[in-house]
Design a protein around this nucleic acid. Structure first.
Length: 648
RNA sequence: GCCGCAGUAGCUCAGUGGUAGAGCGCGUCAUUGGUAAUGACGAGGUCGGGAGUUCAAUCCUCCCCUGCGGCACCA
């Protein structure tokens, strides 16, 4: 029998007979290791203990202490155990797929009746029962026809379809958890008892389309979370509670920032506090853009369909556009307009006015562009997904040769804006040419390498998403990471070789001839609405001083101090600080609590002592200690603190 | 748009086939207090909208709207 050599993580190697399994390897090292082993890495691939190894390889044996493989196996086995539990309770249910996801797993089922939240408890109990049975997990590789025949006989049509879509040369691996069987890539644990029975929980039922296709049957997906032990599960539940506390919809209500109502679904009613944040951010963006060489413009909300037909949007996005018609009785002309769903066609109209020379390029036109899109009902989500929103939009008209420099300038601007708004970390993704596209290969080569070089001029890590570019050009997406580790895609930078041609934009080159400019679509915040939502969640509502809607509340402790409170408040207002006086007939405890809940960063408490000494007692949000300051110093400190980051 | 769940006072929620309740908030009064809730009293509801069943519907049935969790979508 052939010999193979396995190399261990410590660098030592040993010879085994070809076909040896990791379980046997572990046993050869120590029977204690064999008992604890759950899986292995073989040349970096996650390997079931029962799979044979045929060639020389690097191997590492994993135990439950190795978090990554352990979680992967626990979650994957949980998915199978859940599917088994469901079929034990309701044998008519058909199984489909059940992968591992972040923090847990899901499994999609086909069942005529909906699962109810109560069913989840029943399934969970059955799962615990299965875990306690400690049924062995076994695996075999089957021939395609045999597997198809097996699933046909068992009336599992989804499994048949899965097999039919797996390339013919790939082996089909069948797994058994006791008597229950599933088609699965593996690896798995050795028996169901290895799954910790107190570290998983079924979370919710949701609809999901078979193979993610909305034209195909809708299945029922059950989501679960699973961890190595009960403490981790508990920590996860705590994390979810924390995330819920910083939900911008809840904070938006508590801080009186905005609301939504039935008459205008997906459209924001900004309240004074929320609008203050919006305007502060807009002013900041305007300064940043002006300094970065952009010219601000404003274009119409309502534009004739002809322009949308010319740009191609009418054909592609008509169903998501708000169409307006003029009341026939009063109109002396009949025309169909659309509320603009995006700004680019309008920006090209401005570019097209007059004759542009190569000397005008790059021309950077920026607009806080108010757009409307009819988003599907199910897509709406607080400020994060709305139907009326304002983009920090801009289009750079330039030559192919200028793409790289413009992209580098953009990344630079974007980084400083993310830093200033509280996001120090972000990722970049480059999406390259799709199969169906406009523009020559030469121009795609040039543009892709321009974007790539621009990234490399500032950092060396980025992701490539091959074939995911728009049909009109390659793009960069920028994803920022918030305080609790969630990622949000906000910024984008897209080269466009299509629209300038469709809308007949051109410039006169050095050679005196007409040329087509390249158009760069770009946004940093994405939309003000969504970005403010993300900021609220990132800061848990505790916005930095310059953005806080109410920066200071001056609170009287005794009513004798009221006049002085008003005086101090006015001085703050005169200094440009958003300050309010609180001279209500309430105790200081009450006022401190209320303004703390309202996330006011600074409370100035004023009692008899302060009136007498012309001082204030300053308390910062979340801090217990206070400090006594003379008024001029307080004004000086807070005025400095209120300066937006770009003006410091 | 699809699947499931929900909609009762400004907010969070309880409740019943015989037209409603709590806490917080709000108003009035008392209280003048020292850093996360002072007390008393009071006002406040077409029980999301429409239709049906019934002697009677907030409650049961159907349709619609909105929201929530996913899925699909996101120029």
């Amino acid at each position: 029998m052939a010999q193979i050599s396995l190399t261990f993580p410590d660098g030592n190697s040993r010879d085994y007979a070809a076909g040896v399994t990791p379980a046997e390897v572990a046993e050869s090292i120590a029977s204690s290791l064999a008992k604890k082993a759950i899986s292995a890495s073989v040349n970096g691939a996650h390997w079931d203990l029962s799979w044979p190894i045929e060639d020389d390889a690097e191997i590492a044996i994993h135990t439950m202490k190795d978090a990554e493989p352990a979680l992967e196996l626990i979650r994957h086995d949980c998915a199978h155990i859940m599917a088994r539990a469901v079929q034990e309770i309701w044998p008519e249910v058909k199984v489909t797929i059940g992968p591992v996801i972040e923090n847990g797993f899901y499994y999609d089922f086909d069942r005529a009746e909906p699962f109810t939240p109560e069913d989840l408890g029943v399934i969970e109990a059955k799962m615990k029962e299965i875990i306690n049975r400690r049924d062995p997990v076994t695996t075999e590789i089957w021939e395609r026809d045999r597997a198809i025949g097996f699933y046909k006989a068992n009336n599992e049509p989804y499994k048949v379809e899965l097999i039919e879509s797996i390339p013919g040369d790939e082996p089909l691996r069948m797994y058994w958890h006791g008597h229950w069987q599933d088609l699965c890539r593996g690896p798995h644990l050795q028996h169901t008892g290895q799954v910790p029975a107190d570290a998983f929980r079924l979370m919710k039922v949701a609809g999901a389309y078979w193979r993610g296709d909305s034209n195909r049957p809708q299945l029922q997906r059950i989501y679960g979370v699973a961890f190595q032990n009960r403490e981790q599960l508990k920590a996860h539940m705590t994390f979810l509670e924390e995330a819920e506390k910083r939900d911008h919809r809840r904070l938006g209500r508590e801080m009186e920032l905005f609301h939504f109502q039935e008459e205008a679904p997906g459209m924001v009613f900004w309240h004074p506090n929320g609008w203050s944040i919006y305007r502060e951010l807009e002013d900041y963006m305007r300064r940043k853009l002006t300094k970065a060489g952009y010219k601000e413009i404003k274009t119409p909300q309502v534009v004739d369909r002809k322009l949308w037909e010319a740009s191609g949007h009418w054909d592609k996005y008509r169903e998501n556009m708000y169409i307006t018609e003029i009341d026939e009785e009063h109109a002396n002309e009949k025309r169909t307009n659309a509320l603009k769903p995006m700004n680019c066609p309008c920006h090209v109209q401005i570019f097209n006015q007059g004759i542009k020379s190569y000397r005008d390029l790059p021309l950077r036109l920026a607009e806080f562009g108010s757009c409307h899109r009819y988003e599907a009902h199910g897509a709406l989500h607080g400020l994060m997904r709305v139907r009326g929103f304002t983009q920090d939009d801009a289009h750079i008209f330039c030559t192919e040769d200028q793409i790289e420099a413009e992209c580098a300038r953009f990344i630079d601007l974007l980084s400083s804006i993310y830093r200033d708004t509280g996001f120090s970390e972000f990722d970049i993704k480059l999406s390259t040419r799709p199969e169906i596209r406009v523009g020559s290969d030469e121009i795609w080569d040039k543009a892709e390498s321009a974007l790539e070089k621009a990234i490399l001029s500032v950092r060396n890590d980025y992701e490539i998403d091959p074939g995911e570019g728009a049909f009109y050009g390659p793009k960069l997406d920028f994803k920022l990471t918030d305080a609790i580790g969630r990622e949000w895609q906000c910024g984008t930078f897209q080269a466009d070789f299509n629209l300038p041609g469709r809308l007949d934009a051109n410039y006169i080159g050095e050679d005196g001839a007409k040329h087509r400019p390249v158009m760069l679509h770009r946004a940093i915040l994405g939309s003000f609405e969504r970005f403010i939502g993300i900021m609220i969640e990132n800061y848990s509502g505790k916005l930095p001083f310059w953005l806080a809607p109410r920066q200071v509340v001056v609170a009287a402790i005794v009513s004798e101090a009221d006049d002085y409170v008003q005086e101090v408040t006015q001085m703050l207002k005169d200094a440009g600080i958003r300050a309010e006086a609180d001279i209500r007939n309430e105790k200081i405890n009450y006022k401190v609590r209320e303004h703390s809940v309202g996330k006011v960063p600074v409370i100035l408490a004023i009692g008899r002592k302060e009136v007498e000494d012309r001082t204030v007692t300053l308390r910062r949000l979340g801090e217990k200690q206070t400090s006594v300051l003379p008024v001029p110093q307080m004004l000086d400190d807070l005025t400095k603190e209120a300066v937006p980051p770009d003006l410091r």
